[in-house]
Simulated scan of single mutants.
Amino acid sequence: MADAARLSMTPEDFFVWQRDQDELYELVDGHPVPRHQMMTGASMQHDRATVNIIGSLYAQLRGKPCRPTTADISIRTGIRGLRRPDVMVECAPLMPDTYEAREPRLVVEVASPSTTSIDQTRKVEEYKRHPTLAAILLVETVTPQALLYRRGADGWEIETFEGLEAVIALPDIGATLAMTDIYDGLTFPARRDLASEG
């Protein structure tokens, strides 16, 4: 919708408006922004990693109170903000007619060329505001690397995971994410051998 950016609305107004749209939007500072606009450059690598993460979390959480969700479900990041993470783990009882997570514990953003900077800066800071969120995971797609923000007693701590042997512990939801599972089926561009140059 061409006029969407000129609209200003509350999250409650946004959900009513979103029902009549043909694509998913996020609410940024009270203005709807097409999610696909934020996702320019997303690839099969992005899609495969996202599906792998959902599959791994679903298998581990099946029958437990928490469950993974897709970008269809949003998270409130402020009084005029809603985001749609690639993957989220929601731990509130299921309510069939809601479009918003009530007790999210984990959000995962899978990097695309156009979203890496915003995912690592603005979105992370927005996600940190949510009172029930325990972890924010940023996953790269050009190399097996992930950055985990974990809420601790003294604030947010950062941990980096590199290589396919690493395993990300997520005790707040009773699960782990093995890098081999996240990157199953993905290929990475060959690194140039700098020692052989010059």
Rank of each mutant, 00 (worst) to 15 (best):
R35H: 14
H36D: 14
H36R: 14
Q37V: 13
Q37I: 10
Q37M: 13
M38P: 01
M38L: 14
M38E: 15
M39E: 13
T40L: 13
T40S: 07
T40E: 09
A42I: 00
S43T: 06
S43P: 00
M44L: 13
M44H: 08
M44V: 05
M44A: 07
Q45N: 09
Q45M: 02
H46N: 02
H46G: 01
H46W: 06
D47H: 01
D47V: 00
R48A: 03
R48W: 01
A49Y: 00
A49Q: 01
T50H: 04
V51F: 00
V51C: 04
I53V: 15
I53K: 04
I53S: 07
I54K: 05
I54W: 06
G55H: 06
G55Q: 07
G55D: 09
G55E: 06
G55T: 07
S56E: 15
S56V: 09
L57W: 05
L57K: 08
L57A: 06
L57I: 09
L61V: 13
R62Q: 11
K64V: 03
P65C: 10
C66I: 05
C66H: 01
P68R: 00
P68M: 01
T69R: 06
T70A: 04
T70H: 09
A71N: 14
D72K: 04
D72I: 03
D72C: 05
I73L: 15
I73C: 06
S74V: 10
S74C: 12
I75F: 01
R76E: 15
T77N: 05
T77G: 11
I79S: 15
I79N: 14
R80E: 12
R80M: 12
R80Y: 14
G81W: 14
G81I: 12
G81P: 04
G81L: 11
L82S: 03
R83E: 07
R83N: 09
R83F: 11
R84A: 15
P85V: 09
P85K: 13
D86T: 03
V87C: 11
V87M: 10
M88W: 07
V89Q: 03
V89C: 04
V89R: 00
V89Y: 04
E90A: 02
E90Q: 09
E90W: 01
C91Q: 13
A92W: 07
P93T: 12
L94V: 15
L94S: 11
L94R: 14
M95T: 11
P96I: 00
P96E: 06
P96G: 00
D97G: 11
D97L: 15
D97W: 02
T98Y: 06
T98P: 02
